[in-house]
């Protein structure tokens, strides 16, 4: 039982980090019909910005994290939108998808050239200790990862629902033509969405890299998991992406512990197939879809 709790917690912990990436993915999809196939690399890369801050600019960790977040928001938010999405979107969805695929390769190979192929040790944000509670051994890092990720999700949800800017972002995503005739600055709202996605990816990166170490190829799994979590969740809502992320994290850890680690990578794909067959609108999705 105590082992089960441990496995569950650590699944929820990684799952909540996947959820951050998945939520960003759905936000960008809603606001700009962009399926970002580089999302995994968006999570891989910010950890390297932090390492640059530490190793090259000799920053303390806290400063390097702020530096990494800012660089990520500029490069993966602002520049991604201005240099890739804006020029490609008028040509239709497919060219943009191909562009994000190309970007994913570029970021991955670029990181490999620049920082090497080996996994880089990455500073942990939280103490690597354990708590003993009622016979269960709980990793403090797992616990805090979960708490921080969920706090970020709650903060984002509050922002989107409780502020006027957040509601303007929702209006722009749900019906851009109407938002425009009401005088909403839709271009700015779309930009905010890209900046938020980049920030979410960076935060996911900072939390996951102490677990996975910083490696150029981390984005392969992360991107797939985010994509699948988004689909599992119904592709168009935050709580869906959150549920999808948590579900994948937990299932992944449970199978790795109780069944086999061998097919671990295949699990999200199996989940994807099951969901597509059983509930094509997603776990929490409704079939009404997007009104254009």
């Amino acid at each position: 039982m105590s082992q089960f709790l441990q496995v569950l917690l650590s699944g929820l912990s990684t799952g909540s980090i996947y959820a951050l990436a998945a939520i960003g993915f759905t936000l960008v999809w809603q606001a700009a019909q962009t399926v970002n196939f580089a999302q995994g690399e968006f999570v891989m890369l910010p950890a390297f910005f932090v390492l640059i801050g530490i190793h090259w600019l000799h920053m303390p960790l806290w400063l390097a994290l702020i530096f990494g977040l800012i660089v990520a928001v500029i490069v993966l938010g602002l520049l991604f939108k201005k240099l890739i999405v804006e020029p490609m979107l008028p040509n239709g969805g497919l060219p943009l998808i191909i562009a994000t695929m190309a970007l994913s390769i570029l970021l991955k190979e670029g990181t490999k050239q620049f920082y090497g192929a080996e996994a880089q040790p990455y500073p942990s944000l939280f103490p690597q200790t354990t708590l003993h509670m009622d016979g269960a051994v709980v990793s403090v890092q797992d616990l805090l990862n979960l708490v921080v990720s969920l706090t970020i999700v709650v903060a984002l949800t509050l922002f989107l629902n409780r502020t006027r800017t957040g509601r303007c972002m929702q209006a722009t995503a749900q019906n851009p033509a109407v938002a425009e005739i009401l005088g909403v600055n839709t271009k700015r709202m779309v930009l905010y969405t890209f900046l938020i996605n980049a920030a979410l990816a960076a935060l996911a990166s900072f939390l996951i890299s102490p677990v996975y170490l910083a490696k150029f190829s981390n984005g392969e799994t992360l991107g797939l998991v985010a994509f699948i979590a988004a689909i599992v969740g119904g592709f168009n809502q935050i709580r869906g992406a959150l549920a999808g992320g948590l579900l994948i994290g937990v299932l992944d850890n449970l199978t790795a512990t109780y069944v086999t680690t061998e097919y671990r990578a295949a699990l999200p794909l199996v989940l994807l197939i099951v969901i597509i067959l059983w509930r094509p609108q997603g776990l929490l999705g409704t079939s009404e879809g997007r009104k254009v």
Binding site: R164, R167, Q170, N175, A177, G183, V184, E288
Partner: peptide
Amino acid sequence: IGHGVTYVPQGRNVIPQLSVWHNLELGGI
């Protein structure tokens, strides 16, 4: 809108997932 003109287009023009209250609020955004 700043000049005092508003427009109700043909068809359906609400923000589907926002509440009635928040749809109304957008008229004064």
